[in-house]
Amino acid sequence: RRRVRAILPYTKVPDTDEISFLKGDMFIVHNELEDGWMWVTNLRTDEQGLIVEDLVEEVGR
């Protein structure tokens, strides 16, 4: 599965499916959606939700 790492921290918008995360958090990407959004699991918190791909970088497989 594709893995990405947060290059900046992010605080979710209330009442959305987004998740908050810290710089350096690692994610497993489950689905890539329209407009640059991805459905992921945060490996640090085990939380699932939406993040925007502009805030992450690819991690070598």
Score class of each variant (00 low, 15 high):
M26Q: 11
D54Q: 14
W37Y: 14
V13H: 14
I7L: 11
Q48E: 11
K12T: 04
M38E: 00
I7E: 04
F27L: 07
E57C: 08
E57W: 01
W37G: 12
S20H: 00
D54W: 08
E34Q: 15
F21A: 03
E47K: 07
R3N: 09
E58I: 07
V40Y: 03
M38F: 08
T41Y: 06
I19A: 00
M26L: 13
W37I: 10
I28H: 11
T16H: 03
T11Y: 07
R3F: 14
Y10M: 04
D15Y: 08
V29R: 04
E32V: 13
Y10N: 06
S20N: 09
D15W: 07
E58R: 08
M26N: 13
K23F: 06
V29C: 06
P14R: 09
V59G: 08
V4W: 04
W39S: 08
E53N: 12
T41H: 10
R3M: 08
K12L: 03
I28M: 13
V56W: 02
N42A: 05
D46W: 15
D35F: 08
E58A: 09
I51Q: 00
D35W: 06
K23G: 07
W39F: 12
N31V: 08
R3A: 06
D15I: 05
R1A: 09
M38Y: 08
R3L: 10
R5L: 07
K12F: 00
K12P: 10
E47M: 07
P9C: 07
T16W: 04
M26P: 06
V13F: 08
T11H: 09
Q48V: 12
E53C: 10
T11Q: 10
L33A: 11
K23L: 07
G49H: 02
D15S: 11
R5I: 11
K23A: 12
A6K: 02
Q48C: 12
L33P: 11
W37T: 15
R5M: 13
I51C: 05
R3K: 13
I7R: 11
E18T: 07
L22F: 09
G36A: 03
Y10D: 00
G36S: 05
V13R: 15
L50T: 12
L55Q: 12
V4G: 01
R44N: 07
V59S: 09
T16V: 01
V59W: 09
D54E: 11
M38G: 03
T45W: 01
F27K: 00
V56S: 03
S20D: 09
P9Y: 03
L50C: 13
K23D: 07
I19Y: 02
L43N: 05
D25V: 01
V29E: 02
V59C: 12
M38D: 02
L22E: 14
L55H: 15
E47S: 06
R44E: 05
E18W: 00
V40I: 02
T41K: 09
D54K: 15
V4P: 01
M38C: 07
L8F: 10
K12W: 02
R1Q: 05
V13G: 12
H30C: 06
M38T: 03
M38P: 02
K12C: 10
K23P: 12
V52Y: 14
L33G: 10
H30Q: 12
V40P: 03
I7G: 03
F21K: 00
E47G: 04
H30S: 06
I19E: 01
M26G: 05
V40A: 14
R5G: 03
V56M: 07
E57I: 07
R2F: 08
L50Q: 15
M38Q: 04
D25R: 00
E34T: 10
L22A: 10
R3Q: 11
K12I: 00
I7Q: 05
R61C: 14
Q48P: 05
G36C: 04
H30I: 08
N31P: 02
I19G: 01
I7D: 00
V40K: 04
G24T: 01
R2G: 07
H30Y: 05
E32D: 13
L55F: 14
E58K: 08
E32F: 11
I51L: 08
L22P: 00
T45D: 03
H30V: 06
N42C: 10
I19N: 00
N31M: 12
W39N: 09
L43I: 13
V4H: 03
P14W: 05
A6Q: 01
R2V: 07
E32I: 15
T41E: 08
E18C: 06
A6M: 03
V52L: 15
I28P: 02
N42S: 07
R1V: 13
E34I: 07
T11M: 10
L43D: 05
S20E: 04
I51D: 03
V4N: 02
L43E: 13
D25E: 03
R3E: 13
W39A: 06
K23E: 14
L55D: 05
L55S: 13
M38I: 11
M26I: 12
T45P: 00
D54N: 14
E18M: 05
M26H: 11
E32P: 06
S20L: 00
V13A: 14
S20G: 05
L8S: 13
E18N: 03
G36Y: 01
L8D: 09
M38K: 05
R5P: 01
R5S: 07
E58Q: 09
R2L: 08
P9H: 08
T41Q: 07
D17R: 14
V56G: 02
G24D: 11
M38W: 05
P9M: 06
T45Y: 02
W37N: 12
G49A: 01
I19M: 06
Y10H: 15
V29S: 02
G60A: 11
P14N: 11
L22T: 09
D15F: 07
D46C: 14
R3Y: 12
L43K: 07
E53F: 06
D46I: 10
N31E: 12
L33T: 12
T16E: 01
R44W: 00
I51M: 04
G60H: 11
F21Y: 10
V56N: 01
V52F: 14
V52R: 15
F21V: 05
L55M: 14
D54A: 15
T41L: 06
D35N: 13
R5W: 04
D46V: 12
E57R: 08
P9I: 01
G36R: 08
R44V: 04
T41G: 00
I51A: 05
R3G: 05
V59T: 09
T16F: 03
L22G: 07
R1I: 15
W37A: 13
V52D: 09
L55A: 15
T11L: 08
I19Q: 00
M38A: 05
V40N: 00
F27N: 03
L8C: 11
E32K: 14
E32R: 11
